[in-house]
Simulated scan of single mutants.
Amino acid sequence: MFNFYFGVGFALVNFVLFLLCYKWFGKAGLFAWIAAATILANLQVVKTIEMFGLVMTLGNVIYGTIYLATDLLNEKYGEKEAKKAVWFGFFTLVMTTIIMQLVLVFEPHESDFAQTHLEALFGLMPRLALGSLTAYLISQYLDVKLFAKLREKFSRPDQLWIRNNGSTMVSQLIDTFIFCMIAFAGVFSWDVWLQIFFTTYVIKFFVSAASTPFIYIARGFKHPEEAQKPGN
């Protein structure tokens, strides 16, 4: 049960740091958070843990905060800014992938100790990288559009939880399906594939639900830039 209880605390740390990043740095902090989270999520995913008898990967909590950030941008600054943030995160992920692949090409000195560790972290198969990038771009754009549509029907301030959870839970389902299909279809048997798909989405589902109080807290923070909210 250690991983479960530690995981709860780990999620809280992620949410609190997210709040601090927005409180201290405003809209720029949300863009910076998305950039950092896309990189950290793809580093954490190489580590597997066991919880309740199931093997799962890390990275789902920090990845879930990306949806939290884009939904908050959509809520306070408009759909255009949320879309810009999606592309910013996508560029960050592509940039990191390209640069680190080039880093791995350099021949290490005989005294070097980092090459094998860097290969373990960044030498991912192209199939995994393709799955991650494709799933990110499609699901994030879907999340932005769904949030905007839900805001038309559920526009009251107290209905933010519907906009946030409705858009995130649907888009993360698509994200999980796309990534698992590209990365793992044909690699594992279908029963194992279904277990990976199910456990990954369940974790994302609970992370999304747990993040709801934090988006309400973040919405209450005031920054001067909100006066120039861009149009959609």
Rank of each mutant, 00 (worst) to 15 (best):
L128G: 08
G166D: 02
A120I: 11
I138D: 02
M100S: 14
F179K: 01
G89T: 05
A85W: 00
D112T: 07
L102M: 11
P108V: 04
H117Y: 15
A135N: 11
T97N: 07
R163I: 01
R151M: 03
L173A: 04
K84T: 10
Y141V: 11
G186L: 04
L146Q: 04
I182V: 08
V105E: 10
F177M: 12
S139W: 05
L142E: 07
E107Y: 11
F179L: 10
V170R: 03
E119A: 13
V103N: 12
F106H: 09
H109T: 12
A120M: 15
F113L: 15
K145G: 00
V103S: 12
I174N: 00
R151H: 12
V105N: 05
D112C: 06
F154H: 06
T116S: 14
G89C: 02
P157T: 07
W161V: 11
L137Q: 10
M169S: 08
P157W: 05
S167V: 01
A148I: 01
S111R: 13
T96W: 04
R156E: 15
T134Y: 07
G166T: 01
A148K: 06
R163N: 11
L146Y: 02
I182F: 04
A129Q: 15
Q159S: 10
I99K: 06
I178H: 01
L102A: 11
Q115V: 12
K153G: 14
F184I: 02
S155D: 13
T96C: 11
W161I: 11
G186M: 04
W87H: 09
F122A: 08
D143S: 09
M169N: 09
L130G: 06
M100V: 07
S171G: 03
L160G: 05
F177P: 05
S155L: 06
I99R: 03
